[in-house]
Every structure is written in C-alpha cells, then in structure tokens.
Amino acid sequence: MSVATTAAPGPAVGGHEPAAVPRPARRGVTALGVFSALVYAFVLAPIVVVLLSSFTAADYTSFPPRGLSLRWYLEIPRNPEFVESFKVSVVVALVSGALATVLGTLAALALVRFRFRGRDALNTFFLSPLMIPGVILGIALLQFYARAGITKTPFSLVFGHLVITIPYVVRLVSASLAGLDRTLELAAMNLGATPWQTFRRVTLPLAAPGILAGAAFAGITSFDDVSIALFLASPHSVTLPVRIFTYIEQTFDPLVTAVCSVLILIAAALVVVIERSLGLARVFGSDAAGR
C-alpha cells in the first residue's frame, strides 16, 4: 500500500522505439549497394595490388605477379638504406609527435578555456598550416634554414613536422575540451581542489582520449609526410617515405613493393590498435572531415 504520485513505474525497457533512419524496406542487392561495393574495391585496389605483387618471383613488378616467392622480402635487409630510413622515420615521428602533443594541448587549453583578445585570430593561425600546400612549407623551411645557417639534421626535420602536426592536436584537443562538462571542474573546485589539482585530476583524464587521438594523428602525419621531409632531409637522415619516393622516381622493381607492403602491414596493425583503443572514426572521423 502506497501513495502513487504521478507516473507509475513503467516497464524498465527502453531504447526499443523505432529506429531513427527509415531504412529501405527491401534488403538485398540494390544498385546503390553494387555501386558502393565497386567504390570500396577502388579504395582498396592499390593497397591490395601492392601487397600481392610483392610476392612475385620475377625481376620486375607486374600484376598479376609472376610466380610466388618471398625473395624480395629477403632482399630488404640487404639494402640497409631502407632499414636505416625506417629508424629515422620512427624517431622523427615519435619526437615530433610528442612535442606537438604538448605544444598543441597548451594552445588548445588557452583557446578553449579563456576568452581573450586575439583568440579567434590565434585559433585561425594555429590551424592555418592545414591550408598551406606541403611543398610550399617544405620550400619555405628549407630556404629559411639555409638563410639562418641551420644545417640539416634530424632535428630540422622534427621542427618542420611540428608545423604540420600541431594543428591536428589543437583541433582534436579543442574538440574534446569543448565537449567537456564544465560543471565537473566547478564541482571539483567546490569540493576543495586547487586549479592545478582540478586540471590534473578532472580535466586531464577527461580530455585524455582527445589528447591521445591528437598524439596518434600527429605521429602518423609525421611518419607519412613526404612533401616537407623531401626538402629537409639530409643525406644521413632520409625518412622512409622520402626514400621510397626517390627510389620509385628512378625505378620500381619488386624490392620497393616489398618495402611498401611492410608499411601497409604496419598500417594495418595500427588500424587494429587504434580501433581497439580510441576508435578510428574518433581519431580521423572528427578531424579529417574538417581538414
């Protein structure tokens, strides 16, 4: 026996209301589905073709491959310049990715958390490298270094990459900070946390997915870059994409298909890791669309 006020406790089942988007009544094969499948094939074609042709036994690249062997993979260690370049790429990507994450997060914090004169201009400024063609940045940096008397070292490459990676971090971290419920911070302060404790214990953990996504994007962007690295690489520090680029410009024997295949496999592994940890759509979907 009790006094019921307004609503009776309804059935606890929720979320079974009709699905939002009206879907086609008929399933199965549609013209749209067939067209989409062809486009997906187009998207995957070059990647699959490189992978398959790397197993050729012949001395030249062809598709379909002639014969089946791993000889060109065994050839890779005999060409230390590729291995060396891979190391350079990894180091540059890690260092510039880490630096960009710190610098970009600082900028995002200022841009999202404060209202100050010049904020909009700064925001545009920090995102503007995305609109500048990579080649132009590369030429500009090379000329600038030469004029300032800075010699080419792996660090000149790292600095060059900061310009193209920081914008992504600023963007992704800003988005994640902007989506953060401000009252959580107020609640923390209300419970006696200092601003630093609030940042450390509330803001940072909540923004962590955005920061990690920014770091991942920055690292990948640095690793894959050619336009800037082509100009800034010194003979002793050539990144792998640049090495492949200059190699292909002269010849494309199956050795380079094997090297490219290794890169594809690394990317595939990355897809799995990022998808499992952050969600690929989160890293790319949110940002890449607005690039």
Binding site: L44, I47, V49, I244, V256
Partner: peptide, 16 residues
C-alpha cells in the same frame, strides 16, 4: 574501410 587507407602513406598508395 574508408578510413583505414588514410593510415597508409600517400607514397605507397600512389605507388599502388
């Protein structure tokens, strides 16, 4: 499927 190729370097994809 649409996003994954973005992780493969442009050099490799053009090479394809």
């Amino acid at each position: 499927l649409v996003l994954a190729p973005l992780l493969v370097s442009v050099v490799v994809r053009s090479f394809g």
